[in-house]
């Protein structure tokens, strides 16, 4: 599963090469919040990778009587159908993390392209791209997701496609604003005058200078991807034969786990989604704090030097 490797590799590589960004990475490891988040993420990635070892065989195999409470044989109990909840949860991590990080990376890539093109070319290109972005931002997300998913044939690739289509616009707006402010700096003007090609200016001059913003939007997109995938699948709009945290919850709800009181059928998957999202949010919060001194909590209110323009 290459995507899981992407998943584990994303956070470090997003802040790799240039010296300025290596500083960001070190600061991240210094920050307790970020470290906790990174460890939690690594743990989940490891569990997802090791699922075939930890819970060998098909996780949706029915191998026990249904609705059993957690016991020594089934640590997290069994579903109403008699599947092992622990195995379902471990295998579910694979699909959920894969979709989450794929959606995050793809949506951020589109947002980077749109944001950079808007900022670099300006004028008509900017107007047109901003218009499209704003329309996507304004259209109600969840209903749009549902209606797209309802018309497309069900499957994991549909889920990814639909989430990317609905998820890129917010990031694009943020990245455009940031790129625009960098576009106005002298060194970009110098690069234009020396005759560098537009693509080179966009990706080698402007992009590296907004790495931290790219990273926060990427993490935000991954959080969106994991949560929205679970939501879609919970509504029965994913591929219900795939094992993921979302489909686990869908089946738990469909089999009446709530009404029969088998809480172990729906608690683990929900907790996993929450923990991954929380870990990503922690890293995000830390990146924010490192790059935006105003949000640092130790500073007293009176000592705030900056002011909103």
């Amino acid at each position: 599963m290459t995507a899981i490797e992407i998943a584990t590799a994303t956070t470090p590589t997003a802040s790799a090469p240039s010296s300025r960004r290596r500083g960001l990475l070190r600061q991240l490891i210094d920050s307790k919040k970020a470290l906790a988040g990174l460890i939690l993420l690594a743990l989940f990635a490891l569990l997802a990778l090791l699922a075939p070892v930890l819970a060998p065989g098909d996780p949706s195999l029915i191998n026990s009587t249904g609705s059993q409470a957690p016991s020594a044989a089934h640590w997290l109990g069994t579903t109403a159908k008699g599947q092992d909840v622990l195995a379902l949860t471990l295998w579910g991590a694979r699909s959920s993390l894969f979709v989450g990080f794929t959606v995050g990376l793809a949506a951020t890539a589109i947002a980077i392209l749109v944001g950079l093109a808007s900022a670099y070319f300006g004028r008509i290109v900017d107007d047109a791209l901003t218009l499209v972005t704003n329309i996507f931002l304004l259209l109600p997300g969840l209903p749009l997701l549902i209606i797209l998913a309802a018309f497309l044939p069900p499957g994991t690739s549909t889920v990814i496609l639909v989430l990317v289509v609905t998820g890129w616009a917010g990031s694009a707006r943020v990245l455009r604003a940031q790129a625009k402010s960098i576009r106005g700096k002298d060194f970009v003007a110098a690069a234009v005058v020396t005759g560098e090609r537009p693509l080179r200016i966009m990706f080698r001059e402007i992009l590296p200078n907004m790495a931290s913003v790219v990273m926060t939007t990427l993490l935000g997109c991954v959080i969106f991807g994991i949560g929205a995938q679970a939501g879609l699948e919970f509504l029965g709009l994913g591929d219900s034969s795939v094992v993921s945290w979302g489909t686990n919850l869908y089946w738990a709800s469909n089999d009446g786990a709530l009404m029969t009181g088998t809480w172990w059928a729906f608690v683990p998957s929900g907790m996993c989604i929450a923990l991954v999202a929380f870990a990503l949010a922690l890293v995000n919060y830390a990146v924010d704090e490192i790059t935006n001194p105003r949000l640092r909590s130790r500073r007293a209110r009176r000592a705030l030097p900056e002011r909103r323009a």
Binding site: G227, G261, I273, F278, L282
Partner: peptide, 22 residues
Amino acid sequence: IFVGSFPYFWLAMGALYLFGVS
């Protein structure tokens, strides 16, 4: 932030289970 990390529908299911069913 922690509460916001939970998928919304899952919290709703939890509330339904806790206050409604149990």
